[in-house]
């Protein structure tokens, strides 16, 4: 491991000498996998494989530095004009290298050590972002700020996010009401967001308790356990395909779910799946939308 790091550093150092010195100031930091990273200065050519990293780049005003994006990156709309590369398990190194990036931003999910090594051997810096919670998102933003030389913008964005969340948290009363996040619909077997997910954290900000706080991460849960827990709110992240009932209508029409407080009160919300699942700045929108929904008059009616 250490030998590998040394090699990496040596490689980077040698190659660094060949790169045009864009800006004088070099930076050293560790990425979110605790790998030491040395850059001679902010970079201009970045390939970002995860959707959240793309969103962060644009939020920092560094969208012009993006020379390639992973296939699932679709926000903001301008990102769609960037060249697409395969991501995740299908990451194609040749495709990435053809874009001649200085840095590749990737998540930890599917990239293998071999892929990372191959990229670094080819002279491309690999920087891993791996946000598991809101604090992680701030770290990722700060890190991407450093990489792109947008430190001030990054600090600003982090502050804005913190304030947004703090404001909502301050407004939100801790009423003990519960929320059930449904990430897979009944047709394919219910899945709920449990402890340690972004959704769990967002619920807390909104003053809600996660109905499945006893489940770690994501878990397939039984329909009857949802009925038994009788959550005050149901939030589904299903997407609507433009045919048949909407996800909300589908939940309201489920056999036997009529007894639920959330169903009786119409407290079922279809969250923007991308905003609420991606560790990026749009978590602000997601939490705002969620908070607005739970504080709407209909949803505030006391349960019968």
């Amino acid at each position: 491991m250490i030998r590998k790091l040394v090699t990496l550093l040596l490689c980077a150092a040698m190659l660094g000498g060949c790169l045009p010195a864009a800006l004088a100031e070099s930076v050293d930091f560790t990425d979110m996998m605790n790998r030491p990273i040395h850059l001679d200065g902010p970079v201009d050519r970045i390939v970002a494989l995860t959707a959240a990293d793309c969103e962060i780049l644009y939020a920092l005003g560094a969208g012009d530095k993006l020379v390639g994006r992973g296939e699932y990156c679709d926000y903001p709309a301008e990102v769609l004009d960037k060249p697409v590369v395969k991501s995740g398990a299908e990451t194609n190194l040749e495709e990435v290298l053809a874009l001649n990036p200085q840095v590749v931003l990737m998540g930890t999910m599917a990239q293998t050590a071999e892929q990372v090594e191959a990229l670094e051997n080819a002279g491309v810096k690999v920087i891993v972002s791996d946000a598991q919670n809101l604090a992680g998102v701030y770290d990722a933003i700060a890190m991407i700020g450093t990489v792109t030389g947008k430190n001030n913008e990054a600090d600003g964005l982090i502050l804005k996010m913190q304030e947004t969340f703090a404001n909502i948290a301050a407004q939100a009363e801790k009423t003990g009401k519960t929320v059930y996040f449904e990430v897979s619909p009944l047709q394919w077997g219910l899945w709920a967001a449990g402890k340690g997910t972004f959704m769990d954290e967002l619920a807390e900000i909104c003053g809600l308790e996660n109905a499945f706080a006893d489940v770690q991460g994501w878990g397939a849960v039984s329909a009857e356990s949802v009925l038994e827990r009788d959550p005050d709110f149901i939030v589904t992240t299903s997407m609507y395909w433009g045919e048949g009932p909407t996800p909300v209508e589908e939940i309201l029409s489920r056999d036997g779910w009529g007894v639920l407080k959330a169903v009786k009160n119409g407290a079922v919300f279809n969250a923007d799946s991308n905003a609420i699942t991606r560790p990026g700045p749009r978590l602000m929108e997601a939490v705002q939308a969620l908070y607005e929904f739970i504080s709407a008059p209909a949803a505030l009616e006391p349960a019968a």
Partner: peptide, 15 residues
């Protein structure tokens, strides 16, 4: 009688 029992037993478990 409508309620949790009816829902769980007749709408969820039985089918």
């Amino acid at each position: 009688e409508d309620g949790l029992y009816k829902s769980i037993i007749l709408s969820i478990r039985l089918p």
